[in-house]
Design a protein around this nucleic acid. Structure first.
Length: 223
DNA sequence: TCATTAAATTGTT
DNA sequence: AACAATTTAATGA
């Protein structure tokens, strides 16, 4: 996707909005283009925006006081995030960093609150998205303990293509094996092996610096 | 357009 | 973690 308008059109919560309401959202929302490796938002910052990803790829991370970084999950284009912090916290609890060049939409808190107060579909969407995330994270904890590395890599990749959270239907991730390792909690060497297994199973095609998903359902259920 | 070079990524130990 | 091999992107002739 290239424009804020396209992102809004692809988002499930805009379906019931009038053209005037959409125009208001469009005019109040900021768009920024960010290069690779820069923060989209930082832990500890006051939460002033709901954030949408028009194009690109970002990751949610947390840095310990000692400087160790853990990656929670990747987020792909079409998705919105930060509603949890917006609803609950004064400060953001995690960092979001670009993994490749990204175009990001920042919806001000005031616009977010206005939607929350006036649009039932918007509230439904938030419930659904929060629920989807919850089950995603529960599944992560579950398979972190139960599954072998091949399956963990498979599911982290599949998670990037969750159609509920990221309506943009693309099948490519431009992501190094090192980054896939961070996303799935597996060493780069192990990712390398896992990708070969998945490629031999006909689920993905591995290219230099990117992975193309062939069989998404197969990836999700890979054991 | 082609060749050269540096940087990034991959494959292997 | 380390090393070599491979691929890409950038540069300049």
């Amino acid at each position: 996707m290239e424009t804020l308008r396209e992102l809004l059109r692809a988002s499930l919560w805009t379906k019931s909005l009038s053209p005037a309401q959409l125009a208001r959202i469009e005019s109040e929302t900021l768009v920024r283009d960010l290069p690779v490796g820069v923060p989209v938002c930082r832990k500890g910052e006051p939460v002033e925006h709901w954030i949408g990803l028009i194009d690109g790829l970002v990751k949610m991370t947390s840095v310990t006081p000692e400087g160790k970084t853990t990656t929670f999950t990747g987020l792909t284009s079409g998705g919105w995030f930060g509603e949890g912090s917006l609803l609950r916290d004064k400060e953001r609890r995690y960092d979001v960093v670009t993994l490749r060049e990204s175009r990001v939409a920042y919806m001000p808190r005031a616009t977010f609150d206005w939607l929350l107060d006036n649009d039932i579909q918007f509230n439904r969407f938030l419930l659904m998205q929060l629920n989807e995330r919850l089950s995603q994270f529960i599944a992560m904890v579950e398979y972190e303990r139960l599954l072998e590395p091949d399956a963990r890599v498979a599911r982290s990749l599949a998670g990037l293509f969750n159609p509920v959270l990221y309506p943009d239907q693309q099948r490519d991730v431009q992501l190094s094996q090192e980054e896939i390792g961070y996303l799935s909690g597996v060493s780069r060497q192990r990712v390398n092996q896992a990708l070969k297994v998945l490629e031999n199973a006909g689920l993905v095609k591995v290219q230099y610096g990117r992975v193309h998903v062939i069989d998404l359902e197969g990836l999700r259920s890979f054991t």
